[in-house]
Nucleic acid binder design. Structure first.
Length: 193
DNA sequence: CACCCGATTATCT
DNA sequence: GATAATCGGGTGT
């Protein structure tokens, strides 16, 4: 399980969003570890009306302006946490990649414990679902995902053969035509939107 | 301080 | 397909 260098995230946000499809997220607990594969992402840039950083830095979105490779976690609709990875080049002041869906690889029982009473294909097929299954909340806002222990991003040591499709982003009302959503073609954990 | 509304999900018809 | 659940940031009084 190779780690990913911080320079990977110091690039155009949309390129990073596309290339994160297929990468792994590792969540370590005292009781055991969970490993999931990223199968759906969306890119958000500070000069993009749909981005939380579009109107400048606030207490809530300050992680999007912080160092790349760290997490931006926010509360959505007052109910669900969503996980982003801060990624941008020097041409913008903020940017991040929303993790919209993941495929469970290891520690599936533990994920079912955090998200009971669902069948496996509904375990992590949405941005609010995967954070609950991995027990990710606001305490991870600003967490370093490159050097972190409890939560980190890793390269897939197995070669995951896949095709990445592109579409417009889901669930937003501004900048709806930007083709900045990426998902693993045919993967059953991709959210239906 | 009141009001609006959102990068969602579960549950009902 | 429609809607409730639930909360905090942003805006305007």
């Amino acid at each position: 399980m190779n780690s990913i260098p911080r320079s990977f995230f110091q690039r155009n946000t949309i390129v990073v969003a596309q290339e994160l499809v297929g990468k792994l997220i590792v969540r370590q607990f005292p009781a055991g570890n969970c490993v999931v594969r990223i199968v759906e992402t969306e890119g958000y840039l500070s000069n993009d009306p749909a981005c939380h950083a579009a109107n400048g830095k606030t207490l809530r979105n300050q992680s999007l302006f912080g160092p790349v490779g760290h997490a931006y976690v926010y509360l959505s609709y007052g109910l669900h946490y969503c996980l982003n990875i801060v990624a941008r080049d020097d041409s913008v002041e903020a940017g991040g990649v929303l993790i919209r869906a993941v495929e469970p690889i290891m520690g599936i029982e533990l994920m079912h414990f955090y998200r009971p009473n669902v069948v496996e294909h509904n375990l992590t097929n949405g941005p609010g679902k995967l954070t609950k299954a991995l027990s990710i909340n606001r305490t991870f806002d600003g967490y370093d995902l490159v050097q972190g222990i409890d939560l980190k991003i890793a390269e897939d040591s197995l070669s995951y053969s896949h095709v990445t499709n592109t579409s417009s982003r889901i669930g937003i009302s501004k900048a709806v035509d930007q083709p900045w959503r990426f998902y693993s073609s045919g993967n059953r954990f991709v959210s239906r939107g």
